[in-house]
């Protein structure tokens, strides 16, 4: 009883900690630039995070089951490439092209998942392979050329509701649904169980393989969704999303999800994405040069995970004291 009472404030402090860190960044940039606190800044950020956020949701699930998905950047690029080629080269109707884009993402995720499950392989190496396969396929599909498709995808970027863009609203919706599934459904509990102790999970009757397969498939599908948004904004460029997997993993880990599995939160991931984006935008707005940007970003990533360590320790002692 006591325990469950404690758990609710603990969740709250989690979010408050992240929000505090974010607030601190906003304050620093607000003071060091002239126009950081403006609707334009926040509009821009809201417009630029949806693709990363959606991929980070999938990655959160993957990390929770103690896996990793290095292929997300490439799979997104491949999905976007298929979308671009379908629209720009073959003139296929938009709905069909969108379905193809999502299917490509889903199939890549399924393929990674099947291989991981079938041979009980570490997902690190399987998805590293998939990263190469998908990138190579992207170059083949696009013939290494950028395809201009924004004019056909304007309905994705230009649709707004209450001043918020459709991609942003979609990303928020996906975050909420994914968090709900994670914390309120049997499947979500199974994910945590698989990530905490796979053997124990199997012995207690959880279909471990099915859970893992499903999580990788979802991660792939979400890459397809992210590709719709990314391509609508940046065109079908075969080099889209290079290095994005690390950016996504960084955001997820900053959000307090454990690389070791069994612990994580999708909502916190959203804060992680925000922190990285605010940092990027803020640094660009101060006019910082590339070396400074990289140094500062690296320091913030490390500071965030160190903070997370202390926060967890505090919470642990708090729980123990309560018992």
């Amino acid at each position: 009883m006591n325990n469950s009472h404690r758990r609710i404030p603990a969740w709250l402090t989690d979010y408050l900690g992240m929000a505090g860190a974010l607030g601190l960044l906003l304050l620093i940039f607000g003071l060091s630039t002239e126009n950081f606190f403006s609707a334009a800044t926040f509009g821009t950020i809201a417009n630029q995070i949806p693709d990363t956020t959606i991929m980070a949701v999938g990655m959160t699930w993957v990390l929770i089951i103690a896996g990793i998905d290095l292929s997300v950047g490439s799979v997104m690029a491949l999905s976007g490439a298929v979308l671009g080629v379908a629209l720009a080269r073959f003139g296929i109707p938009l709905p069909v092209a969108v379905v193809a884009c999502l299917l490509v993402g889903l199939l890549c995720g399924l393929a990674s998942g099947l291989i991981v499950v079938a041979w009980s392989l570490p997902s690190f190496i399987v998805t590293l392979g998939m990263m190469e396969i998908a990138r190579g396929a992207t170059y083949l599909v696009t013939q290494s050329r950028t395809l201009y498709v924004s004019d056909r995808l304007e309905m994705i970027t230009d649709t707004t509701l209450l001043g918020l863009s459709a991609p942003f609203l979609l990303a928020v919706l996906i975050v909420l649904v994914a968090q709900f599934v994670l914390s309120m459904t049997v499947f979500g509990r199974h994910m945590v169980a698989v990530g905490t102790n796979e053997t124990a999970a199997r012995l207690s009757g959880i279909a471990v393989r099915r859970v893992r397969l499903a999580v990788f498939a979802v991660s792939g599908l979400l890459c397809g969704v992210a590709a719709l948004i990314n391509t609508a904004r940046y065109q079908a460029n075969p080099n889209n999303g290079i290095g994005m997997e690390l950016q996504v993993i960084a955001a997820v880990v900053i959000g307090g999800t454990s690389l070791m599995g069994g612990r994580g939160s999708v909502v916190s991931t959203f804060f992680g994405v925000l922190i990285i984006k605010v940092l990027g935008t803020g640094l660009a707005q101060t006019g910082a040069q590339e070396p400074t940007k990289r140094l500062v970003t690296g320091c913030v990533i490390i500071a965030a995970v160190v903070l997370d360590y202390y926060r967890r320790r505090l919470r642990k002692t708090g729980t123990e004291a309560a018992q």
Binding site: T33, T41, T44, Q48, N230, G282
Partner: peptide
Amino acid sequence: NWETAKAAECVSAIATE
């Protein structure tokens, strides 16, 4: 960095500032 997304981030920030 020669990249589309990175350039978009920089240009947005500069345009705002």
